[in-house]
């Protein structure tokens, strides 16, 4: 019997990265885009459309939630919508990480991956 978190796996790439970006602090959309780009060394550039489409779905799935707006320093003084990861979101992110780790172990056992990253 799958848990509710496992039923969402595997996560789309954008969803996983958004969860990771929100893991340590609440961010607004643009900050998520920048964080993902920075962490992947510019390899993954989320477009605003993809971002908000993903976040819309994630809100409905209960992975993240919107918290009350506050001014964003890097966007002048406009009030932005900030998002926070929910406990369920953390659970799902952990489950996805475990899944990825298991896959990596399997690949490593057959010599398909480096011993140490």
């Amino acid at each position: 019997m799958k848990t509710e978190a496992e039923s969402l796996l595997p996560l789309p790439q954008a969803t996983f990265h958004i969860l990771v970006a929100l893991a340590d602090e609440d961010r607004h959309g643009y900050a998520v885009i920048k964080d993902v780009a920075a962490r992947t060394g510019g390899a993954l550039k989320l477009s605003p459309g993809t971002l908000y489409r993903s976040m819309d779905r994630m809100v409905q799935q209960g992975l993240i939630r919107e918290i009350s707006s506050r001014p964003a320093r890097d966007m002048g003084d406009e009030r932005r919508r900030y998002y926070r990861i929910t406990p369920f979101g953390r659970e799902v992110a952990m489950a996805e990480s475990r899944r990825l780790a298991q896959m990596l172990d399997l690949a490593r056992a057959r010599g398909l991956a480096p011993r140490k990253v």
């Binding site: 959309g29 643009y30 885009i33 605003p48 908000y52 976040m55 819309d56 966007m75 406009e78 932005r80």
Partner: peptide
């Protein structure tokens, strides 16, 4: 829901 946000990002 997101139009303003997206427009703001585009502006930057």
């Amino acid at each position: 829901d997101y139009g303003d946000e997206m427009a703001a990002i585009f502006r930057i």
